[in-house]
Design a protein around this nucleic acid. Structure first.
Lengths: 334, 334
DNA sequence: CGAACGGCAGAGAGCGCTCTCACACAGCAT
DNA sequence: ATGCTGTGTGAGAGCGCTCTCTGCCGTTCG
């Protein structure tokens, strides 16, 4: 019907005021007399005026949008692992509240990485959330150099680095393994996560801490948080120590994979082998048997990340790393 | 280090040419002498120049970004259902190829809906992908009025409406139910999806078609595609007809819920009751027993949606609805 | 009664870019 | 020499908005 968008100018003409006044009304400045505001509002309404954000951000130097970057290959980000989705949801919720837009970027490929860098450094976003950090990602440094606010999920491995939100990975893993120890398990293995990610490293550390203190030998296989890698790792563990009586998997998806291998190998869970996961994904509760796991507030992590980056973007200082608590959920698998 | 971004002007000064020439080089116009191009490129490099996209889109009237809108409540979009994630991945992949940005919007709440409308109509995006359509969403009309290209996943219920990509929902359901009939099942129930979504409607239609043709009575319960709703529906069906010997669930998540209820009620699958799902989510293959299901190319749907909206945005016409094929994956549950 | 003030509106200068147009200059035909 | 092309470059006008600055008015105070 009306494909041409009216400009401020048009609205001003219609309302019989100046552009500046319309701008004031649109942006809710208190410096406008109520009756004039009224007239302008009506004109806005009648013309269906919507501000041109490009023009606005050109002058304000703000974009009112935030990039959420997943540095994983897309296949990984959105397999059946609901972690990523939870983060998105958390971030998105907070963005809604702040009336900011969420620009989603997957930077799995090298090409993608370059694009992300170009885009995020071009002041087209007010800040960047890095959902997770692998080893030495060059992005944080590039952004810092440009003065673009960055926060990241999972504290940086090296220390220093950008502000971050993390969770009690060490503590959570300790809780899980302590639970296994307390129930009398002697040969407790672990399926660790990728060792270039802080969550992978920390959960393994937690496992080691408890084993060391309780005088048990550690039995380790490494996965990449996916179900298949969990299954593979479980087979490996069974080969390494057929008599193991417990497994702590650093992610629920890996635990689910392990459960299946255990079943195939004729072990009963938890009678022969106890299994504890990490994440408390929805599927954990539906597993056979229902999976004992460590719950962490991944959704809150998304929200917290969003809040932080928004604070940074508006020039405030933030106190990080923020560490979110975890909680052991005891079900039937251990 | 260098928080102020250099402008075209600065680059021009450094290279000793005019703004226009730098612009030409940056945008790859052939109208520039190689040696001058060289000089300009070096200046760009040295200053770390990155074009200001806001300024560019102000004049070009393009935003180089596309909105992907999920009209569901966030909790729904990203529960443990990986469908949404697959769409995102597909869309994202195509956007990468086209060098466009993906702006993700969840419009579950009424407030969100309004925000989405404001944002998408403000020419801040070149087009909009509506991931799914519920009954009478006002957004397509609003966008059409503004001349903003829209495509949607799942053809509109009412007919007409925006261009869309859909899949063989009727045909897929028919295949599934025919499989049940062929294996001699007599009392075939269905757990239908929400009847305000085309996927829900069509899959039920497919079920009805086959039952009608094979002289069986239909037994229907309705869910909302989620696992819990599947479980609830299954209990209901068992009450309605304790002797049923097959269930066609309109989504794998519902089938998974049904599987669990069946197990709890002491039925063996597939011996007592055969179960077929729809979607072929990763978890289907890992279910106990592995779920027979209808696979559809949800990822391709994302890609197709992206391609369509990009075509529309560049003024081309498109031929829709595009219908993607489905395929019956026979595993052990039926 | 004039000066000072405070609340409100308008004028106008950009934000950083693209794009049209004009123009300079080379090469060739007239 | 004059005119014509055609190629390559620069000048300059905006795109639609915000925001500072200026100036108007009505009020209050010395």
């Amino acid at each position: 019907m009306n494909a041409v968008r009216p400009t401020l100018e048009k609205v001003a003409a219609r309302a019989g005021v100046s552009r500046a006044t319309v701008s004031r009304v649109v942006n809710g400045s208190p410096q406008v007399k109520p009756e004039i505001r009224e007239v302008v509002m009506r004109a806005v309404e009648e013309l269906g005026y919507v501000p041109n954000l490009a023009a606005r951000s050109l002058v304000t130097q703000r974009a009112d949008s935030i990039a959420l970057v997943f540095p994983e290959p897309p296949a990984r980000v959105f397999s059946d692992d609901p972690m990523f989705a939870s983060i998105i949801r958390g971030v998105s919720q907070e963005m809604d509240l702040a009336d900011k837009q969420l620009v989603l970027m997957l930077s799995g490929s090298p090409r993608g990485q370059e694009r992300v860098e170009r885009y995020t450094t071009s002041r087209h976003v007010d800040g960047v959330i890095l959902a997770s950090l692998h080893g030495a990602d060059p992005l944080p440094a590039a952004l810092a150099r440009r003065g673009v606010p960055v926060v990241c999920g999972g504290r940086p491995i090296a220390g220093g680095g950008p502000p971050s939100v993390d969770m009690e990975n060490v503590g959570g893993a300790e809780q899980a393994v302590r639970h296994l120890v307390a129930s009398g398990r002697r040969r407790i293995a672990t399926i660790a996560g990728p060792q270039d990610m802080i969550a992978g490293i920390d959960r393994l550390t937690g496992y080691r801490n408890v084993l060391r203190d309780s005088d048990r030998r550690s039995i380790v296989a490494v996965g990449d948080f996916t179900r298949d890698s969990g299954a593979t790792a479980m087979r490996q563990l069974l080969r390494d120590d057929p008599a193991l009586d417990a497994v702590f998997a650093a992610s629920d998806m890996m635990a689910l994979g392990a459960l299946q291998v255990l079943r195939q190998s004729g072990r009963r869970v938890p009678d022969d082998v106890a299994v504890v996961g990490f994440d408390d994904v929805p599927a954990a509760a539906y597993a056979e048997p229902p999976l004992t796991t460590v719950r962490h507030p991944i959704h809150d992590m998304g929200r917290e990340l969003a809040r932080l980056v928004l604070s940074l973007a508006s020039g405030e200082d933030v106190d990080t790393p923020v560490i979110l608590p975890t909680e052991l959920i005891v079900r039937e698998s251990a």
